[in-house]
Every structure is written in C-alpha cells, then in structure tokens.
Amino acid sequence: MAQVLVVDDSSTMREIVSSFLSQNGFDVAVASDGRDGLAKLGADPGIRLIVSDVNMPNMDGLTMARTIRQDLGNKDVRIVMLTTEDNAAIRARGREAGVTGWIVKPFRGEAVLGPFRKLCGMA
C-alpha cells in the first residue's frame, strides 16, 4: 500500500517526485491525471497524501480534489498541489476544493520532506 500518490500528466515530473520520495522512505504510487488518481485512491486505502499537478487532461487536479472531498466524502487524505500556477484566484479555488497545501514548481524535495512526513504520520 502506498502512502503517497503522485498525480501529474508529465511522466518526467512523476518520475522526479516519486523517485525522490521513494529514496526518502515513502511508499509511492503514480497516476497520469485526475481520473487515474481517483482510481488509484479508490484501490489503495493506505494513501495518506496526494501530490498533484493542477493542469492535466481528462480531469484537472482541482476537480480531482473537489471529487475526493465532496463526492467521496474523504476528509482524511491530504492533498497538496505541485504546480506552476501561482495566483491568488487559483489558490482560492484550491482552498474551496479542499486542497491542504500549495507548492510552486520547480519541485525542491528537501524542502518538503519534513512536512510530507508529518502529513503521512511518519514524523
């Protein structure tokens, strides 16, 4: 069972983030968009943290977050957006959708290790 689900339509970003987290003690699953992310979350009750891009085909990250919170009623999983989007309006949409945190790309793994460990109950 994975602790972290990395959701990004870029295979390069999925690899960078998932490899870094795996090398630092996290069990990681990956998904290519929001729909795939919902399926992976549904299949793995051990997921405690989702790290997701915002802009993806099929289903974007904010729609995925809103679906997790409202349609699935899952208030326990933490959702962190890892995105190039950095404006107040989209962050507000994220809060409304139930997003826990916001990280602007590029991904700086060392900076998130402590917070991610806490969110996963590892600290």
Rank of each mutant, 00 (worst) to 15 (best):
G101N: 15
E96W: 07
D33S: 07
N55V: 11
G37T: 03
D9N: 01
R117G: 13
A29N: 12
D60F: 00
Q70R: 14
V112P: 02
R14V: 01
V80L: 09
D36Y: 03
N55P: 02
M13T: 07
K75G: 09
P57K: 09
N55F: 15
R91M: 14
L72G: 08
I68Q: 12
A31N: 01
V51S: 10
V104P: 03
T84F: 09
I103V: 12
L49H: 01
D33T: 02
A29T: 02
F116K: 07
R78F: 11
C120P: 08
E110I: 14
T12R: 15
G101W: 15
S52L: 01
P57S: 00
P106Y: 13
Q23V: 11
L113M: 10
G109E: 13
I50E: 07
A123K: 14
A29M: 04
M81W: 12
S10Y: 07
M122V: 00
D86V: 01
V6F: 13
F116Y: 14
A88S: 06
I50G: 02
G94T: 04
D33V: 05
S22Q: 11
D76F: 12
A31Y: 05
I16R: 08
A31D: 02
I16K: 08
N74G: 06
E15Y: 12
A123F: 05
D9E: 06
L82N: 06
F107C: 11
I79P: 00
N55G: 10
T63K: 15
R117K: 14
P115T: 11
S22H: 02
G101M: 15
S22A: 12
A65C: 10
P45Q: 03
L113G: 04
S10E: 09
P115L: 15
I50L: 12
D36L: 01
D8F: 10
E15I: 13
S19C: 10
L113D: 02
D71W: 15
V6P: 00
V80T: 06
A97F: 03
I79E: 06
I47R: 03
G94H: 05
I50P: 00
D36I: 06
R69E: 08
G61S: 02
E85W: 07
Q23F: 10
T12Q: 15
R93A: 11
E15S: 12
D8Q: 05
M59W: 01
S19Y: 13
R95S: 08
N87T: 08
D86R: 00
K118A: 15
R91Q: 14
L38C: 01
T67R: 14
G46H: 10
K75S: 15
R95V: 12
I90N: 10
S52G: 00
Q70D: 14
D76E: 11
D9H: 03
V4I: 08
S18A: 10
L62K: 04
G73W: 13
V4M: 12
A92P: 05
A65T: 08
G61C: 07
